[in-house]
Design a protein around this nucleic acid. Sequence first.
DNA 1: TTCTCAATGATGACATCTCAACAATCGCCT
DNA 2: AGGCGATTGTTGAGATGTCATCATTGAGAA
Lengths: 154, 154
Amino acid sequence: MKRKPSAPGPRYAALIQLLRTAEELWNSSRVFFARWDLSPSQFNLLNVLTDFPDGCTQSDLSRQLIMHRSNVTGLVDRLEERGLVTRKENATDRRAWLVVLTPAARKLLAELLPHYHAAAEQVWGKIPAARAEKLVSELATISENATRIANAKS
Amino acid sequence: MKRKPSAPGPRYAALIQLLRTAEELWNSSRVFFARWDLSPSQFNLLNVLTDFPDGCTQSDLSRQLIMHRSNVTGLVDRLEERGLVTRKENATDRRAWLVVLTPAARKLLAELLPHYHAAAEQVWGKIPAARAEKLVSELATISENATRIANAKS
DNA sequence: TTCTCAATGATGACATCTCAACAATCGCCT
DNA sequence: AGGCGATTGTTGAGATGTCATCATTGAGAA
């Protein structure tokens, strides 16, 4: 008894749900960060920079944020215009800038982050932390498999 | 003993991993669909249309794909230029088009979908279907919570 | 019927992203 | 020292996405 041609397997729907959930999270975060006039990408960039008090190269940022170098250029441009970030010259490598948070950005993050972390916890509802942590390893497996399969020569 | 100010809760990292995994899946799918000269969004649109043999309104498409109406306009424009989709006039509502798959698109999908469904299964590796299905309900909970929290008046 | 409000799709402005190409610089190898 | 390949940031083209706004059309209330 045949079903539809090329019926999806049982785990296909789960992947779709995963993508959809991530999209909803992203869109929700857009609404959330709009209160501080930030986009999710802008916040992520600032958030990464908090781990690099001495500054961070744009290429390093692109790797941390998993995006193309050329995208970081415009992102930093707009954040620099708003005074949240500055480009410092790098004495040891004259090709690369050092992107640093301004005090204004640190103040903004100090106000924003508690709300953000609280909201992140709220999103899980009654799902316990133990379950969430088990999820992480499964998600990591999926990430690796996806990247490997995509880069495999067909 | 205080940690960093505004330390993230235990489930925060899991959310980050979720977003990262979705991003890797999306990027992997970009590489995957490039074999047929399609973007992930273009594929998703065509895939949705297979469920609507009589055609689908652009607004309906925007709801199915969770994107703004204005985005569907350009997406359909480009697919129409490539002959994968046509805009039929709608007798019962002269505001709306009916977007329909062309035979060429059906042929393309018939060739593409088996590979896609196989890859989707492969991504899970040794994670059993039962666990994947349990994931779905948790992800659905997260989706709902995120949307609700974002839309709540603060 | 007419009026009003909602829905549809298009458009323009803009942010976000990828990719290819480029000049400048770095590092290493000979 | 010189040369060569890799890395860095920028630029331009173009796809993808949001949002506000608009004219057209639908549909239900007065």
